[in-house]
């Protein structure tokens, strides 16, 4: 196999343990010269192939490279974020991840809103009410995911890391947080699929008087206490917590890279809000407070 040895860059890649096994992609090279990859990393990942022409060079498509990146993000977050050092923050992929998560959340929100549509089905404006609630549920879940899971979470990481004299732009934190949402998106997809399996089993109380807040509240409570609903809530919360832990693992390395703080401080920065959220979910689950199962 014929390879090119790039001055400087190749050495740097070898010097950084995080890049030692990194896949060979254009983004892995900071100087943007002709890209190739040498050494062990090629053989291990099977991806370190030349993308330049020449005899013996195997071309690598850009999509394949993105997939490799994402796999690295999930499995080797430290190595993934190390490749971003020195580069200008690019929010395109994080935004795409967050948007994907928001879309999944919107689908789940719309599906859950169908339950409320059934709840008000016997009222005069049942059909309109159902559509309205579906749209509102989807829009709320879409915006909620984007705002809470990306913007607010990034803001929280940024603020907490200030205590550890963290440096770096907010966009860099936003970028890292967005990347870290990928497991959460996967968890959302799984939860949404599970939601569709549970929806037919959920018995929905019917409200006949929209002017009676007590009846509505009671119906909501009954819906949340439905055995299938409760079971789905438990399952979805468990899955959410698991994938949130996975996201937190990515965020730790992302925040460390974005804010230039130690790994210990990054752990503290990430674990505090994540732990608070997990404890809140567990508390709601254990205490029996009605909580609609969500992604």
């Amino acid at each position: 196999m014929q390879v090119e040895i790039l001055p400087g860059v190749g050495n740097a890649a070898h010097a950084d343990p995080a890049l030692r096994d990194a896949p060979l992609c254009p983004e892995n090279f900071l100087n943007g010269g002709s890209q190739t990859r040498v050494g062990r990393g090629m053989g291990k990942n099977g991806a370190g192939r030349s993308i330049e022409g020449g005899k013996g060079h195997i071309p690598i498509k850009r999509d394949d490279c993105t997939m490799i990146h994402l796999l690295d993000l999930l499995v080797h977050p430290e190595r993934f974020f190390s490749t971003l050092e020195g580069k200008e923050p690019d929010l395109k992929i994080p935004a795409a991840i967050a948007l994907a998560g928001a879309v999944v959340a919107a689908v789940a929100g719309y599906a859950q809103s169908s339950l409320f549509a059934d709840m008000f089905a016997e009222m005069g404006a049942g059909a309109g009410m159902g559509a309205f609630m579906g749209i509102m549920g989807a829009a709320g879940a879409f915006l909620g995911f984007l705002i809470i899971w990306w913007l607010v979470m990034a803001g929280v990481f940024h603020v907490i890391s200030m205590a550890f004299k963290g440096t770096g732009k907010f966009t860099r934190t936003l970028e890292s947080t967005g990347y870290g949402l990928l497991p959460t998106v996967i968890g959302s997809i799984i939860s949404t699929l599970i939601l569709f399996s549970y929806l037919p089993r959920i018995a929905v109380p019917v409200v006949r008087d929209l002017q009676d807040p007590v009846a509505i509240q009671k119906a909501m409570q009954e819906l949340m206490l439905d055995p299938a609903m409760k079971e789905f809530t438990q399952v979805s919360i468990a899955i959410s917590i698991l994938f949130l832990i996975w996201s937190a693992n990515i965020w730790i390395f992302g925040v460390r890279q974005a804010r230039g703080i130690t790994l210990k401080h990054a752990c503290i920065t990430v674990i505090i809000p994540v732990a608070v959220y997990i404890l809140y979910m567990v508390y709601m689950l254990v205490s029996g407070i009605p909580l609609p199962g969500g992604a």
């Binding site: 799984i190 037919p200 089993r201 929905v204 019917v206 006949r208 439905d226 468990a238 899955i239």
Partner: peptide, 22 residues
């Protein structure tokens, strides 16, 4: 009494499958 839209019959083994997924 509050009307309830009846849900489908429960599928046996569903909790076990969910536990396995988790």
């Amino acid at each position: 009494i509050p009307v309830t839209k009846p849900g489908a019959q429960e599928t046996e083994g569903m909790p076990l499958m969910m536990i396995a997924v988790i």
